[in-house]
Design a protein around this nucleic acid. Sequence first.
DNA 1: TTGAAAGCGTTACCAT
DNA 2: ATGGTAACGCTTTCAA
Lengths: 325, 325
Amino acid sequence: MLGINVSTVSRALKGLAGVSPDLRQKITQLAEKQGYHPNPLAMSLRYNITHTIGIIVPDISFNHYAQIVKWIEAEARMNGYMCIVTDSGDKLIGETDCIQRLLNLHVEGIAICLSQETVEYAHLERLKDKHIPFVLFDRVANIDCPTISSNDVESARQATLHLIDGGARRIAFLGGPNRMKQTIDRKHGYLEALRERRINIKKKLVKCGHVSFNSGLSDTLDLLGQQDPPDAILTCHGMLSISAFQAIIGKGLRIPEDISIIGFMSDWVSGMSYPRMTFVKQNLKEVGRKTFELLYNQINGDDTIRNITIDARLNIRESTRKGER
Amino acid sequence: MLGINVSTVSRALKGLAGVSPDLRQKITQLAEKQGYHPNPLAMSLRYNITHTIGIIVPDISFNHYAQIVKWIEAEARMNGYMCIVTDSGDKLIGETDCIQRLLNLHVEGIAICLSQETVEYAHLERLKDKHIPFVLFDRVANIDCPTISSNDVESARQATLHLIDGGARRIAFLGGPNRMKQTIDRKHGYLEALRERRINIKKKLVKCGHVSFNSGLSDTLDLLGQQDPPDAILTCHGMLSISAFQAIIGKGLRIPEDISIIGFMSDWVSGMSYPRMTFVKQNLKEVGRKTFELLYNQINGDDTIRNITIDARLNIRESTRKGER
DNA sequence: TTGAAAGCGTTACCAT
DNA sequence: ATGGTAACGCTTTCAA
């Protein structure tokens, strides 16, 4: 429109030297008036920088994951990045599919919360081979890559100790698949607490199945129907906490008089239940922020592999009996 | 690698005529082996088709919105589209910012759930002027564009009638901002029911403020502290339902003996509360699917403006007294 | 101070 | 049947 070369325009708009003040003003004014915005697609094609990251979660509609996503997104935005959020459906096949689609879009990195089915990591190794930055968050794995997770062992241990101190002796554990690190860690903390307090471990009280509402429901009903039913349950996933709670109430048992229960959940879910659930509160804001931070560092060439653990704290409400000591 | 021209490769890979079977085989094999995938950025630059849509929600961490997003995403994926999910923070400024950033990324269309602050629509008019396809969902507005919303008037009417039939006569209404269409519609249904049953409308029982946990809490406490406190509350947003419920319980009142309450929420939130909340269940799956469908149609040149209403149903639980008739 | 051209990956069109 | 080239929007390097 000004009858000049694009390179001049480029220089002017980027504030580089080598444009007469006169011309520069004309250019910036016209750009403003026309509502000019650089086309990021062109830049992407040229330099393969899309300023875009991908996020993969097992179930975006589940509060826990949605909250982490919100914080990753907030942090990303502050650093000029956009997020493409995808949902693996908590399945391995969905996870690999999401990765493929994100790579097609040339995201600069991927933040992954593993599906409960994921016990092999070939798809992640492939990312490594291609030098695609990625970070595991919340549900991580024992492979050599950056991870952000909550302090699962210790928080489960604290929760179990709290149950024991409240007088519980037959404490059940309700978790996800046996080979999932998150379940393994939380079970580890649970077992450690039992050993510390010299309480016999009863295999029948440990339920590691599928993370889903229905599975949690039937596992809890099974526990409650045993000859020597538990006097407390530690549930190790928000979904399982909800289903276990409803199973107990549905059976007409009183909480915490007949049975205590602790869940992994957020403030407001606990606040809705009656009695309010004693729960492990994870610092999801920090998980989200650190997740982006590690990804960002990787994108910018920092290849130190950090494995960060974020503290989680037990919040005591009314679904557990108070300690006598 | 094969020492041939790119155009030949393009033809071979796209299955177009004009390649010898021999060469075609060589090309496809090599492509397979090399893990070739067409670069969508190049295609985007060339034809401005990104196969990407944007979604704007007030708060991705809130279950209600996250669920709709999940269904939009599922439908989009089935049609070869990716979603860029952004969070307006329930503010107008955030909303316009999200739109700008999505346009920069050249999304082909935008699905918008309005912020509670949005009472002017200049930013949407600008989208229209630029012929960017967009659809409003869940929280819509009275402007000339495609919309998907739940049957707010009728579901609020049904809910109010249920309260009246249960014996309530001083029914409070707790909603969002006065100028938000969703609040207006639900209030409309509420008032209609009162008129139908010849019950006096008391202005002091109608609270239209801010949609937030704290606002809902203080508004409810204010209602409960009135000289003639309500014997029932209709809460018109999931967040307000939660805060009202907790305010009532916190005051030591019994539900439904002292006061009945109805919320807009999902099954599992209702299932967690005790007593379980009677609630209006919206068909979020259908909202999500139709939202993508309308957007998709627009992207493909269909410029008929449809305003779709999805049925919502009252699910009766134990937070309301049963009707005597 | 300004212009010209290459290059990112792809496809469509025209020439060979 | 295959090759060459322009075009998409932008930046960078080199030349004028």
